[in-house]
Each structure stands twice: as C-alpha cells, then as structure tokens.
C-alpha cells in the first residue's frame, strides 16, 4: 500500500455487539479512519473506548462476512466487532 493510501481518511461504519456495545456505550458509529485493516481500526477504537477484550478473543466481520483481521479496509465498509456470547 502506498504512503498516500495510508494517509487517506476512510469513512467506515462500525457496529458493536454484546460486551463491546456496552463498553463502547453505543451500538454503532461512523468513523473516519486511517486504519488499513480491522486490526488497526480496533486498536484505534480501543484508545477511545474501554474495550477489555483483545482481538484474539473477538471475531470481525466486514460487509456481513467473517473477515481476517488483516483484510484491507475500504471506504464505506461496515465493520462488525463480535465478542463471544454464551448465555442461555
């Protein structure tokens, strides 16, 4: 990825569920980010929200598909961070 691409602010939509929604205090937000991957985006959001779970305990979905943490982010992507849920 070129240095220019790195500096571009991309608008993405982020959705949170369960514990993350609670810790973020919201169920979704629009973010303009320089993050290139979901992992970078999550680290960026961690500086704003008191997330206790690291990415290795979460799953990420991009545009309604489970995705790899290193998948390149594109402008307009919808990113969902999913913590595991077990209640019954």
């Amino acid at each position: 990825m070129s240095p220019e691409a790195n500096s571009i602010l991309r608008p993405v939509r982020v959705q949170y569920f369960a514990l993350l929604r609670e810790q973020a205090g919201r169920s979704d937000e629009a973010v303009d980010t320089r993050a290139r991957t979901p992992r970078e985006l999550y680290e960026e959001l961690r500086s704003r929200h008191p997330f206790t779970l690291g990415p290795d305990l979460l799953r990420v979905a991009v545009n309604s598909e489970f995705a790899a943490w290193e998948q390149p982010l594109r402008a307009g992507d919808t990113v969902i961070f999913l913590p595991p849920v077990a209640g019954g």
């Binding site: 369960a18 514990l19 290795d56 305990l57 595991p84 849920v85 077990a86 209640g87 019954g88």
Partner: peptide
C-alpha cells in the same frame, strides 16, 4: 470455524453475571 480457539467461559458474562 467462527470462534477463536481461545474462547473460554469467564471472558464475557453469561446470564448470571451480565
């Protein structure tokens, strides 16, 4: 296939805790 190997009870709350 969906959840990481490290998923264990106690990391997030269940009905009793949360």
């Amino acid at each position: 296939c969906m959840w990481p190997e490290a998923t264990r009870d106690g990391l997030v709350g269940n009905c009793v805790q949360a």
